[in-house]
């Protein structure tokens, strides 16, 4: 253990003594592949901070990149990777930030400025581990972005619109899955309560495919609305969807279905006692 710690101290001392040379070269090497998309000043600030945290961690004598000594380094790296991911940098461009330090260090060793093979191996392993950590953080940040977008899409594509006093409509567009139908169902029912509308129209003109599960969800929505005291009409069933529904043997029971949204609206208005006459008196 004594040799181990002795060598470590050597590495720490080296990193401390050569801090300026290494940081400068590191910034230079990292800046090249980014092609000016990130200002050198900003990169310099980031990497100097990272370097000081890394140096502090190395000085503790600990060499486990996943240990508690490196917690600050990992936090800072995650932060930087996250920012890179959101700014649209590629994984390579993100990870090069870590690996460039390795190259800077190798160059230092090449000039034989007091570093032994042991130091090179130790630092190399350390930076590899941190590089992988960068990748992971990057991937995680990207996944978060995707999740957020999926959620926004869910919100965006399920508006509840008011067609008339007491008549609501939900135009469904795209592919229906359980999660989306659940959102639609809850939103529609909430809107029924808040507006006091007694009629709701679910328009599926924009739905490309209906399977048994989707039909089941639609039926459940209609039943739930009915339990709350509102009537639900399904409109806009495309010809091939109608064929699928019949082919699958799905029973819509006594739920009114209409060909178009206009028909459904007319039906809803009739049920709520609204009658239309032309301005000139003709029907």
């Amino acid at each position: 253990m004594t040799t181990e710690s002795g060598r470590s101290d050597n590495l720490a001392a080296l990193l401390r003594d050569r801090a300026e040379t290494l940081t400068a070269r590191w910034v230079e090497l990292s800046a090249a592949p980014l092609k000016g998309r990130l200002s050198v000043a900003e990169l310099d600030r980031e990497l100097t901070e990272l370097y000081s945290v890394l140096l502090a961690a190395v000085e503790t004598g600990n060499r486990d990149a996943h240990g508690s000594a490196f917690a600050d380094v990992r936090a800072l790296l995650s932060d930087i990777s996250r920012r890179r991911a959101r700014a649209g940098f590629t994984p390579t461009e993100t990870a090069i930030g870590v690996f460039a330090l390795k190259q800077a260090f190798f160059e230092l060793v090449d000039r034989a400025e007091g570093a032994g093979l042991g130091d090179v191996v130790v630092l190399s392993q350390l930076l590899d581990a941190l590089g992988l950590w960068t990748f992971e953080s990057y991937a995680r940040a990207r996944e978060e972005v995707i999740d957020e977008q999926a959620e926004q899409l869910l919100e965006l594509t399920t508006p509840v619109v008011k067609l008339w006093d007491g008549v609501l409509a939900v135009p469904l567009v795209g592919t229906l899955d359980s999660a989306r139908t659940q959102v639609v169902m809850e939103k529609l029912l909430e809107s029924l309560v808040s507006t006091g509308a007694a009629h709701a129209i679910i328009d599926i003109t924009g739905v490309l495919a209906v399977d048994t599960q989707v039909a089941q969800h639609l039926l459940k929505t209609v039943m739930a609305a009915r339990l709350m005291g509102a009537e639900c009409t399904i409109s806009g069933i495309r010809p091939h969807i109608a064929q699928t529904i019949v082919g699958l043997g799905i029973e819509f029971g006594d739920i009114p279905t209409k060909a178009s949204l206009a028909d459904a609206l007319r039906h809803a208005l009739k049920r709520s006692g609204v009658d239309f006459v032309r301005a000139d008196g003709r029907r």
Binding site: E186, L189, A224, M228
Partner: peptide, 8 residues
């Protein structure tokens, strides 16, 4: 709504 969904 929650009650209606539960019953369904």
């Amino acid at each position: 709504p929650a009650v209606a969904i539960t019953l369904v």
